[in-house]
Simulated assay, not measured.
Amino acid sequence: MFRTLSILIKKEFLQIFRNRSILAIIFVMPVVQLVVLPLAANYEIKDIKMAVVDHDNSTFSRELLRKITASGYFKITSYSENYRKASQEVEKDRADLILEIPNNFEKDLVRENSQKVLIAINAINGTKAGLSASYLAQILQDYNEQVQLKMSPELESTKNSSGLEIIPKFWFNEGYNYRLSLVPGILAFLVTLIGGYLTALNIVSEKETGTIEQINVSPIRKTDFILGKLIPFWILAMTAFSIGLLVTVFVYGIQMQGSLLLLYAFISVYLVTILGMGLLVSVYSETQQQAMFVVFFFMMIFVLMSGLFTPTESMTDWAKYIAYLNPVTYGVDGIRLIILKNSGFTDLLPHFTFVTVLGTVVITWAILRYRKTN
């Protein structure tokens, strides 16, 4: 058994190293994507284009506009005479929002201590619109407090003597650095992508080249054949993960908080599950194109519903059930817990249990589904 298995593994490695494109996918892709994706992705939106309609043209309105632009989030792209012309700027995509300051803005603030401004936001990009509204609301609130203190200096003492002071503390990410949570998640996604795609194309490539017929008439057992397909890509995927981990530590300066041994133990089990799913797709597929489309379909669902970009807690109830049956959810969360939170084996027991059970099911399924009489 072991001699047959070692021969099959050697054969797989020879085939892999003859294909330079596979080597590039394994060794170059993790480095390039880990370097490019976190630098390109940014959860903070700046230079939001703003069209201004200032009917007041007073000292207070100019101070408000200076305060908005000084924040660094907004950039005034046009001053319009009325709302209709400002809306044309939004329609032509030259502005993201409209700020309309009414007549008697300064007068009403001074005399009546109240005033309203109109904010109209282009919400085609919902995320950008929501953040724009949040940023602008905070700036307007700060400006309002500033005006109140200017009009009534005695409020300063009341403000300083207030009994409630909020000082937030961000655990496991004190600087609130988005890359600290994004990079470990992308690392999980990369090993999933490498393991899933390469193994899905494995057996089906034997079918297309006709070598599967020679294997079918040989005395090789199904278990040995499946393991011979699985082990080489497991080793290469672990190597790709190690390269990505080095990029994580030395390029982004993310320090390992947890156990390196536990991290590799978790990735070892996780990759077995991902490789098993890829092999199952390969067993059912007749062509490499078919296998690629099937893996792409599932990979899109796995990534988008894994919590990599949006938290699973914010999903609807039915989507949460899908997310909790998604192996990538456990992969992303497990790597983050170990690297950032220093979680132990007990904390990761649900992750280990799920990926172990799923891996056992899909590999057993692939062995039973593969028929040497094909």
Rank of each mutant, 00 (worst) to 15 (best):
I26V: 11
E112R: 14
S152T: 15
N144R: 11
L187Q: 14
F296S: 13
M315L: 13
L358G: 01
V249W: 05
N57L: 10
I339E: 06
T239A: 15
R3F: 10
T356Q: 01
F17L: 07
A133F: 00
E12V: 10
A86T: 02
D108L: 09
V35M: 14
S161I: 07
W365G: 08
V281M: 01
E91Y: 13
Y264E: 15
L180F: 12
G244H: 02
K150L: 13
F2E: 09
N113Y: 12
K67M: 13
Q290P: 00
F225E: 05
L246W: 09
V303D: 02
L304R: 01
G276F: 06
F60W: 14
I322F: 01
L64W: 01
D224Q: 15
A41E: 06
F250S: 11
L260F: 04
T353W: 01
E44H: 02
M256W: 07
I101Y: 06
N125D: 12
L64E: 01
V357G: 01
Y370L: 11
L64T: 01
A129M: 04
T209D: 09
K107E: 07
V53E: 05
G228I: 01
A133W: 00
F266N: 09
V357Q: 00
P219L: 08
A41D: 05
L246I: 14
E12C: 08
M29E: 13
L193A: 03
F296N: 14
E208N: 12
P102N: 06
G344E: 09
V303H: 03
G195C: 04
A129H: 04
G258S: 07
S181I: 07
T364C: 11
A120H: 05
M29W: 08
F170N: 14
I367N: 03
Y43A: 15
T287C: 00
I339P: 00
N103M: 14
L340Y: 02
L99N: 04
V35R: 10
S152A: 15
Q141T: 15
F345K: 02
N342Q: 08
A51K: 07
Y284H: 10
R371A: 11
D56Y: 01
I167T: 10
A95G: 05
L187W: 09
T158M: 11
S87K: 14
A70S: 15
R221T: 14
A120D: 04
P219S: 07
G210W: 06
Y370Q: 05
F297W: 14
R84Q: 13
N160F: 05
Q288E: 08
T353F: 03
I215M: 06
G175Y: 03
A200N: 00
H351L: 07
G344K: 04
F105M: 07
A200P: 00
V281W: 00
V247M: 02
Q146E: 12
G344N: 10
V110T: 08
F27P: 01
Y43W: 11
V272P: 01
D93F: 05
N326K: 10
M29N: 13
I68V: 14
I226E: 00
K229Y: 06
T373S: 09
